[in-house]
Design a protein around this nucleic acid. Sequence first.
DNA 1: GGATTTCTTGTAAACGTTTGCAAAAGCATA
DNA 2: TATGCTTTTGCAAACGTTTACAAGAAATCC
Lengths: 367, 367
Amino acid sequence: MNNAGNPPKKKHSVTIMDVARASGVSYATVSRVLSGYEFVRESTRNRVMEAVEHLGYVANLQARSLAGGRSQIIGLLVPNLDNTYVGTVTRGIDQELVRANYDLMLYTSHRHPGNESLYVNAIANGLTDGLLLVAPLVPTTYLDALRERNFPYVLIDQADATENSSVVEATNWQGAYEATRYLSQLGHTRIAFITGALAVRSAVDRLRGYKAALADCDIPVREELVIEGDYQQQTGYEITKSLLQSVDPPPTAVFASNDLSAFGAMDAARECGLLIPDDISIIGFDDIPQASLVCPKLTTVRQPLEQMGQVAVKMLLEQIEHRGRPPQRVTLATQLVIRDSCGLYQTQRGEHSKTLKSTGGSLLRTN
Amino acid sequence: MNNAGNPPKKKHSVTIMDVARASGVSYATVSRVLSGYEFVRESTRNRVMEAVEHLGYVANLQARSLAGGRSQIIGLLVPNLDNTYVGTVTRGIDQELVRANYDLMLYTSHRHPGNESLYVNAIANGLTDGLLLVAPLVPTTYLDALRERNFPYVLIDQADATENSSVVEATNWQGAYEATRYLSQLGHTRIAFITGALAVRSAVDRLRGYKAALADCDIPVREELVIEGDYQQQTGYEITKSLLQSVDPPPTAVFASNDLSAFGAMDAARECGLLIPDDISIIGFDDIPQASLVCPKLTTVRQPLEQMGQVAVKMLLEQIEHRGRPPQRVTLATQLVIRDSCGLYQTQRGEHSKTLKSTGGSLLRTN
DNA sequence: GGATTTCTTGTAAACGTTTGCAAAAGCATA
DNA sequence: TATGCTTTTGCAAACGTTTACAAGAAATCC
């Protein structure tokens, strides 16, 4: 085989047999001690643990999960690794996972573009006890397969159309509503909206929140101001550019469905010679760490990304422990974070500068 | 056991036996086809592949690696998930890994603070074929153990004191040298230096590059301008603050050993009422994506992070294929990226505004 | 055409666990 | 002391692969 002339056998590591021998019991008993079986004599347990300690025994994961036990590994499928959105969610996941003594297997979805179903199949067939999906684009393809296998999984920031999956998300509608309303209160009426990929449920919710807010503020929706994006900075840039150049009169505010798009919008605005927030207001969604780094600092709707990761893990572990629990849906609160990228609508008469009042949602002033 | 009343057996998935049955050969032959053994009749191979395709067979990883084969998984140990530094390196790793059909297991080092040796032991004992360590802080503890087991691993951006490990790094000395020299050419003579954690080899190299450049520019090293940091933004902030407040005369330029520290320095400078780059110049190291987002855009020394990840994977796979190859050390070129955070030293007589000339290294003008 | 050599395939034995089953050991009750 | 419970333990059979070994088939040589 392609194994050339090298020592193929790993140095023999200490197995459950060694522990059994050292503690004078059968390997089955050792296994029971290690997996916390209750009917083991206290003295036996101690003897075994001592041997484990002494020999530095670590259970072999392959063998364990092959034999039907838990692998103590969960799979994480993320869309990419470019932005800190994923990083932040992952941090939350990681925190909770270490607490439960689980390991993490990372998959980047762009890695297997065509055959996604084979791909997810592989994860589930493999050694993970469960799967976490961060904002997957086309989940429908493989969710059915997972459900049919009764394989535990949780969706993060992307709901399942069929309502049959466990989901962790934020109050997308409410967040978008508040952001839009905030812009309106600043006097803006020509508020453009850059959506996310509308295949993603959260993107649709945000769009609905935007429209609802406009309606409540008696601002008619102008369809030419609503353009479908894809959460990418470049796309946000291009959309904003065309909005500013070809819509007349141009928008005085841009609400981007995520911070990355908002960054793109800022680039475009600047390139058109507009000052932020004097000439144009820009607001984002997510509050990734970069949002407070850009200049001016981005006003945005904060999603509790880290917390979402934590909650998702808890839900997943719950599912792993108790298969067949009905799917759960957890929605966490968003929060409007006001920074420096939105300003009053500059009007000759200043009529729009009514005082700001809370929208009833949570409002946070920060840097 | 703690397995309550749930269906413990996973739905039986398609195994190598099923494929064997479907294609009318023994399971051993199937295994050989799948692992690319050469002495299989063409017709047999086709028949097997057809069955595989048809049944949607995916090899069970646990079983495979248990039986002595490769798990096709590599472990990645990163210090944290906060900044895009790690994300960028990981992207490179991921790209190369998918090409080689490997999966990725992610470990965050802060997860097992105390017992690192047990931790790495677990990774090596477990199901990974090799290990990638990104900028580990205290590698000495476990490297010996890995080496003794002849377990493949590669260090990224952190050299091993004993020179016994495979390492991928950048030209830290040269990068720091060029950055320092650049500042000097702008007329600065009071150039502060915020180091990284000096336990990390690359941090030491950068410090040496800084000192060498000063020497070559006939600028004496003032020890009060060189302060040990730890690559954290907060620390960069604190150090710069104290530099500006308690050193007299204060530095006119700050060279931070990584971008994160530089961001902290920018915060501090601004807080002291200084304009960047008019009153103070700041330069970083790494060129993480945020560097071009901050305001003003950060001049910095680019490390080819993504490429470092790719190279590391190639080296690791090489090691996995051919155990016992002597450790290799690859050094990639850094590049000075000039943006907007550094300016000419403001002097009454303007005597320092000599024309800039290339330092001989690579120089890149970009936004 | 028989003897070699080279390909091709199958059998069986690992790999290190978990877990059903049954036997052994305690222990209380009668 | 026998009886019937619990608790504790061991045996053996999976789990799904890889791979050494050996045997059968095909090709090559003299």
